Simulated assay, not measured.
Amino acid sequence: MRPATRTWIAVVIVGCVLAGGAYALTRPGKGQGGKTSGGASAAPGPRATPVVIALARAGDLPVALTALGSVTALNTVTVRSRVDGQLLKTLFSEGQLVRQGELLAEIDPSPFQAQVTQAEGQLARDMAALQNARLDLERYRVLVDKEMIARQQFDTQAATVRQAEGAVKADQGQLELIKVQLSYTRITAPLSGRVGLRLVDPGNMVKANDPGGLVVIAQIEPIAVVFAIPEDSLQPVLRQYRTGKAVPVDAYDREGKKKLATGVLAAVDNQIDPGTGTVKLKASFPNHDGALFPNQFVNARVLLDVLPNVVLAPGEAIQRGPQGAFVYVVKPDGIAQMRRLELGPSDGGLVAVKQGLAAGEAVVVDGAEKLQDGAKVEPRERAPARTRS
């Protein structure tokens, strides 16, 4: 064999040996097995569970009762004509806010003006007749004193004067009645409020007994909210109502997130509905901004009491189990500890804690379903929640 060939064979053998050694050193599990068998290091611990935390705090908690209610106009009036006639014009826009006494419509006054003229003429005629009868009576009085005429003739003239006086009074009453009817041709708003859609167009004949009327006015400043509460909740409301102090009532939208208006409890119904076991309450709201609209559905929130300086925990942190309510408290060393709680009332996403939690402790609000007592956690503080307006 030639020397060059032997040299190439030796190079190939050395390369194979080096490649095999490198594979043996770098194959998976080799390094770990060596460490385990040698006992140089222990296996890594369990990974920390990421959670979101919030701090319990001390504060005042309002105790409130919430019920679904309906906005109701404090007063609703159907404006009708009080006399018969042709509707000449309407002076309001549909949906307009009007003030009490504001002119809404006019009915043709000409027939009533003619009746006024006629009644005034009748009154003038009867007053002239009365004046003449009184002059005759004075003449008869002189003659009867001188016994120049019979007493009966004087008495007859006195009766004629009284009849003329009665006729004048009847004429005066008739004239006043026609003037009142003439004033009814100018239809004014009986109260302040918002007018609805026009029910009769100008040019139509209207009558005093028309059931539909001309327009409907709803008083919306102030406005009312009617809602029902369970009979078991009636006594706490009555205790506050009977003190004579104003009981605050807030109106929220259907979702209960946005506050629309603030008012006071105005009335409590005098009986409980036996079919539903509820009693109706009415609250009054100034409604200057028009936030409440008749027949709108709202959530009425009645403030019953305020618990001062109690421990408040986020409602998301409260967990329920066979043994009651509990939370996971994250200790400074990153360990989650399960705590049994004694709870009080709740409001606005906060729950009053009577026992089991202190102000300033961090509780898990997200990720609690993955935890067990004593678990290692990786806490992240929750962003501050927006205050409910």
Rank of each mutant, 00 (worst) to 15 (best):
D60H: 04
V226H: 11
R139I: 05
K280N: 12
L341A: 00
A48T: 13
A325M: 03
R125S: 14
V377P: 11
V279I: 15
E221R: 12
V63R: 05
Q235E: 11
Q115A: 07
R380P: 04
V268D: 03
A313L: 04
D253T: 03
A54I: 02
E342M: 06
A246C: 03
A358R: 13
D232I: 10
V264F: 11
A56C: 14
G290K: 10
E342V: 12
A42K: 12
A228N: 06
N209A: 01
E342T: 15
S41A: 11
F293H: 14
E361C: 05
G173S: 05
T26R: 06
A10N: 08
G360Y: 14
P3C: 04
Q152E: 14
K146W: 05
N270M: 12
R57T: 10
T262R: 11
L234R: 14
L87W: 01
Q219E: 11
A218I: 06
D171L: 09
Q122P: 00
S70I: 09
I318G: 02
R198E: 07
A325I: 07
A164F: 08
T243E: 13
V353E: 03
V206K: 01
N299D: 08
P3W: 08
P3K: 10
V71I: 01
A129R: 13
N204A: 14
A251M: 04
D305A: 07
G69C: 08
A164R: 15
L177E: 12
P3I: 13
P190T: 00
A336S: 02
P308Y: 00
T36Y: 12
D210Q: 09
G85E: 00
A362P: 04
L312T: 03
P3F: 08
L199V: 03
G15V: 13
G39K: 10
V351S: 07
A246G: 08
V77R: 10
V306H: 10
D305W: 00
L341W: 02
I223L: 04
V298L: 02
A362C: 04
F154R: 11
V311E: 00
A58I: 09
V79H: 06
V98W: 11
P294D: 00
Q32G: 02
L123P: 03
E106Y: 09
L91G: 09
E138Q: 15
T278N: 09
S70V: 13
T78M: 00
F326Y: 12
V327L: 01
T276S: 11
A291D: 04
A48R: 12
L260V: 05
G69P: 05
L65D: 05
L103R: 15
V71M: 01
R388N: 05
P3E: 07
M205T: 15
K30Y: 14
P62Q: 04
T26G: 08
V116I: 10
E147G: 10
V142Y: 15
G85W: 02
A10R: 13
Q118T: 11
P28S: 00
A133S: 15
A129G: 08
